[in-house]
Structures are given as C-alpha cells and as structure tokens.
Simulated scan of single mutants.
Amino acid sequence: MSGIGGSSSSDPYDSDPYGDSSSSDAYDLGASTGDSDGGTYRSRPARRSTPTASSSGGTAQTLKDGTAVLIRCASTDDPYATVEVRNPNGREGLFTVRISFRDEHGLTVIDSSDQVSVSAKDEATVRVPVASTGRVDEIDHCEVDPRATADQ
C-alpha cells in the first residue's frame, strides 16, 4: 500500500505527507523528542510568517530638518539676531537654530542657539539673544547654521 508521499510502508506515520522523499527520516531536522512511551514525535518546520509593519503606539513620523536664514545680525542697539526658519514637514515641529556671533577677524565671540515652533509647511521668525550682552560690541557679523534641527 502506498502512503501519501509515496512511501511503500503501510504505517501512515512513516509516510512523508509533504511528498519530499520516500523516507520519513529525510525531514527529521533534529526536532525529534522522545515521549514517555518510548515513541518519537517529529515536527515539520512550519511555514515562516511574512514580517509585517507594527505600530509602536503612535503614527508620528520622524520630522525632517528645516532651513534657517539670517534676517538681521545682533547689534549694540538690538542684541538679538533675527532668523527665519522654514518647516518642510506636513505637521508642526520644534526646530533648534544655531548661530555664531563673530568678531571682525571671523573669530567666534559667542555661539548661541534657540528653539522655535513652526507650523506645517510654514515659516516662523525667531530672535536669538546674544548670551553675554557685555560682548555685543565685539560682534561684527553673524553666521547661521542653514540647517534648523528638528527636535523629535
């Protein structure tokens, strides 16, 4: 009598139900375990599942960095640099702006940063204060990092 997989054994437990070979030992992948009756249980590896995307509790996506453009440098009359920040994202974001206040030789007098909230696909202006107002008279020009870092 022929088994499902083509084995000539009349014992249905010795047949290969998957049709891979005529020997039941051909698919014994080390998953055999002895039971208390002295019998052997062989398990065939199950079909592997396909990974799917899972949610981590939110639908928030990582924000892209924005851009920063210097509008006006600080002066003794107004010890703030004015910077325009643009948000390229489809949702509101908080962005960090970095600015270097430099002397006439191009040396950094003060490095400063500030944060600004910008609506989706919009722009906002932030006034970055000179951290040490006692050094404002040393400032000749300002340099803004053109990348406004998105704070996640």
Results as ranks from 00 to 15, higher is better:
residue 95 F to L: 02
residue 65 D to C: 04
residue 150 A to N: 06
residue 151 D to Q: 14
residue 133 T to A: 06
residue 29 L to S: 10
residue 70 L to V: 01
residue 69 V to D: 14
residue 70 L to P: 07
residue 149 T to I: 08
residue 112 S to C: 04
residue 125 T to Q: 14
residue 40 T to E: 04
residue 20 D to I: 15
residue 112 S to L: 02
residue 22 S to I: 15
residue 87 N to E: 05
residue 53 A to G: 01
residue 97 V to M: 06
residue 71 I to D: 05
residue 47 R to C: 03
residue 142 C to K: 03
residue 146 P to Y: 02
residue 14 D to V: 10
residue 70 L to M: 02
residue 11 D to A: 01
residue 139 I to M: 00
residue 4 I to H: 06
residue 57 G to P: 08
residue 30 G to T: 05
residue 137 D to G: 11
residue 99 I to S: 01
residue 18 Y to L: 14
residue 48 R to M: 11
residue 60 A to D: 14
residue 60 A to I: 02
residue 15 S to M: 11
residue 84 E to W: 01
residue 106 G to H: 04
residue 99 I to P: 14
residue 16 D to W: 06
residue 134 G to N: 13
residue 73 C to S: 15
residue 28 D to V: 11
residue 144 V to R: 09
residue 147 R to F: 09
residue 114 D to H: 09
residue 122 D to P: 00
residue 19 G to E: 04
residue 141 H to I: 03
residue 85 V to G: 04
residue 91 R to V: 08
residue 17 P to K: 08
residue 108 T to K: 10
residue 82 T to C: 00
residue 120 A to D: 14
residue 97 V to L: 06
residue 76 T to V: 11
residue 119 S to G: 13
residue 122 D to F: 05
residue 143 E to I: 01
residue 136 V to Q: 05
residue 128 V to G: 06
residue 140 D to M: 00
residue 81 A to H: 10
residue 92 E to N: 09
residue 36 S to T: 12
residue 111 D to L: 08
residue 148 A to T: 04
residue 70 L to Y: 03
residue 141 H to Y: 12
residue 65 D to R: 02
residue 143 E to T: 06
residue 14 D to F: 10
residue 25 D to M: 06
residue 120 A to S: 14
residue 53 A to V: 13
residue 18 Y to D: 13
residue 7 S to H: 01
residue 62 T to D: 07
residue 123 E to D: 13
residue 150 A to C: 07
residue 40 T to L: 10
residue 8 S to V: 05
residue 148 A to Y: 05
residue 102 R to P: 03
residue 1 M to T: 14
residue 75 S to D: 02
residue 43 S to Q: 10
residue 12 P to N: 04
residue 83 V to W: 08
residue 20 D to Y: 12
residue 125 T to K: 13
residue 97 V to Y: 04
residue 107 L to G: 12
residue 106 G to V: 08
residue 131 A to E: 12
residue 71 I to W: 00
residue 54 S to H: 09
residue 42 R to I: 15
residue 82 T to R: 10
residue 123 E to Q: 14
residue 90 G to D: 15
residue 6 G to I: 12
residue 83 V to C: 11
residue 83 V to M: 09
residue 34 G to L: 15
residue 28 D to T: 07
residue 110 I to A: 06
residue 75 S to L: 03
residue 67 T to I: 02
residue 3 G to V: 05
residue 111 D to V: 05
residue 102 R to H: 04
residue 131 A to P: 15
residue 87 N to I: 07
residue 28 D to N: 14
residue 69 V to M: 01
residue 85 V to W: 01
residue 52 T to K: 07
residue 95 F to Q: 02
residue 20 D to E: 12
residue 2 S to V: 15
residue 77 D to H: 10
residue 51 P to W: 03
residue 100 S to I: 05
residue 75 S to R: 06
residue 109 V to A: 06
residue 3 G to K: 00
residue 141 H to M: 03
residue 49 S to T: 15
residue 9 S to W: 02
residue 75 S to E: 01
residue 150 A to Q: 05
residue 81 A to D: 11
residue 86 R to T: 15
residue 85 V to Q: 03
residue 138 E to S: 07
